[in-house]
């Protein structure tokens, strides 16, 4: 079930990127980013109202806990910048590389409250397959 949801969110992401790409062509990447976030904000507000959810902020929550939205904007701008210079495939492959390496480190040490999942040397074969996939995406 979890695996299915993960793949489903990848499918949705692909649709989102296609739609946002059209929007960025109509405007520019900075204006598009504002529009995308406004539409998103409107959608989540409607979802909160429909489900009659309440928002309670807890005191003493560190500011970093609220930083994900800002990180998301940085992601969008960095990818837009590199797409204009490197095309589609290379940023995609390099982005997967960055995601994989940071994920392995986070899993191994159990950082940011994630469950600790030490890297097993038997998994080096799978990792080599992944890395070769990343390289082939960049060169072929």
């Amino acid at each position: 079930m979890n695996n299915f949801l993960a793949a489903l969110s990848g499918i949705l992401l692909s649709i989102m990127i296609t739609l946002n790409g059209f929007l960025t062509n109509q405007y520019d990447s900075y204006t598009a980013s504002v529009i995308i976030h406004m539409v998103g904000l409107l959608s989540i507000v409607i979802m909160l109202i429909v489900t009659k959810s309440k928002i309670k902020l807890q005191k003493g929550t560190p500011i970093i806990a609220y930083s994900a939205g800002a990180l998301g904007v940085i992601t969008i701008i960095f990818t837009n910048l590199s797409f204009t210079q490197l095309g589609v495939s290379i940023p995609l492959a390099l982005g997967l590389f960055g995601q994989s390496v940071s994920s392995i480190v986070i899993d191994h040490f159990g950082l940011l409250g994630m469950r600790k999942d030490k890297f097993d040397m038997k998994k080096i074969i799978g990792l080599l397959l992944i890395i070769s996939g990343i390289i082939i995406m960049m060169v072929l």
């Binding site: 994900a68 992601t75 960095f78 290379i90 940023p91 390099l94 995601q99 940071s102």
Partner: peptide, 19 residues
């Protein structure tokens, strides 16, 4: 651009966990 591509992968993972 290579570096910011890789960083954008790192920020995706960090944002996902923090959020």
């Amino acid at each position: 651009y290579v570096i910011i591509s890789i960083i954008s992968g790192v920020t995706i993972v960090l944002a996902r966990i923090i959020n």
